[in-house]
């Protein structure tokens, strides 16, 4: 359905997307995950023919984005980040405009708008100016507008930012229902989003793909562990100083104080790391006391942190 090969995009010779290739099949729900500035939005803008790639090939339904942008745009419903809308229009006027541009049959415009309004529960705000709506409603108007022509592909850039938790849940439900029939690509920098909705995740870091797999596979193939331990010692400053010097962990953080002199830490380590040994040596040397130690397999969040997080 969507195939991206060796996609490169530079702004003023600074590459933002570097050699990205991936495919999305029909009916898949794929998440683009990455911190802000990783290039998610740029990739989406290229897919929706808003930007042209510097090099690489993008085909959607077998059509090249250079050859038939209009045909491609017809297939796609694209909700940009921050859901820009014409604030002076009312919800219904805006949906009307979109339906006209989308070439929906004149007789069917009313019914398709009604359907969308029902789907996104916009009944209360149909006559309000969009600029007067809350962020959540604006998002819903945006969603209604991208689905009104029943597109085969939905591309949603950060669809849940600005929504309150209840709305997020409703949105996720809706998305799952939609993904039965449609191909969906959504981007987010929030992991839980992906966990809750997506089948497959593409993790992007600084313009390159660092992981592209189903969530299950990702967790299965990920061998890193994290250790949670607590120490008993007198001087916290000293402990913190010494612990942070320890080698072998790619992430180490202080969690909380269990008691007056008991300090809890968490460390993420690779499977073959010698962090454990180093820690034991240090405790022995400093004459501290190890209260407890737990070893766990890393969860998605840690995986994401490792793959996409800032390098120290």
């Amino acid at each position: 359905m969507i195939s991206v090969k060796n996609l490169v995009k530079s702004y003023n010779n600074v590459p933002v997307v570097k050699d990205v290739s991936f495919e999305v099949n029909k009916g898949e729900l794929v998440g683009l995950l990455g911190p802000n500035g990783a290039g998610k939005t740029t990739i989406m803008r290229i897919l929706t023919c808003f930007l042209n790639p510097t090099s690489g090939e993008v085909n959607i339904n077998g059509m090249n984005i250079f050859d038939s942008p209009i045909e491609i745009k017809k297939l796609i419903g694209y909700l940009p980040e921050h859901t820009p809308q014409y604030g002076d229009m009312t919800t219904i006027e805006y949906l009307n405009f979109i339906s006209e541009v989308r070439g929906i049959d004149k007789n069917k415009i009313k019914s398709s708008i009604d359907e969308m309004i029902k789907l996104t529960s916009l009944e209360d705000v149909v006559s309000k100016k969009i600029s007067e709506l809350s962020k959540g409603y604006q998002k819903r108007v945006g969603l209604a507008s991208v689905m009104i022509h029943d597109p085969e592909i939905l591309i949603l850039d950060e669809p849940t930012t600005g929504l309150d938790p209840n709305q997020v849940i409703t949105f996720r439900k809706m998305l799952r229902r939609l993904s039965e029939k449609k191909t969906v690509i959504l981007s987010t920098h929030v992991l839980s989003e992906i966990e809750a909705t997506c089948e497959r995740v593409i993790i992007i870091k600084k313009g390159t793909i660092v992981a592209n797999d189903t969530l299950q596979n990702l967790v299965n193939n990920f061998t890193d562990e994290f250790i949670e331990f607590s120490l008993k010692a007198d001087n916290f400053t000293e402990i913190d100083k010494e612990i942070s010097k320890l080698k072998g962990a790619w992430k180490l953080e202080f969690m909380k104080k269990d008691a007056k002199d008991i300090f809890r830490y968490k460390a993420l380590i690779s499977k073959d790391s010698d962090f454990d040994k180093n820690l034991k040596d240090l405790i022995k040397e400093k004459n501290w006391k190890l209260i407890d130690e737990k070893r766990n397999k890393a969860n998605l969040e840690e995986i994401f942190l490792k793959l996409a997080g800032e390098e120290e």
């Binding site: 745009k73 796609i76 940009p80 014409y86």
Partner: peptide, 14 residues
């Protein structure tokens, strides 16, 4: 300024 250009240009319009 409003970002609506992105909206307009990703609609199937020449």
């Amino acid at each position: 300024n409003d970002g609506t250009l992105e909206l307009l240009f990703t609609l199937p319009l020449n």
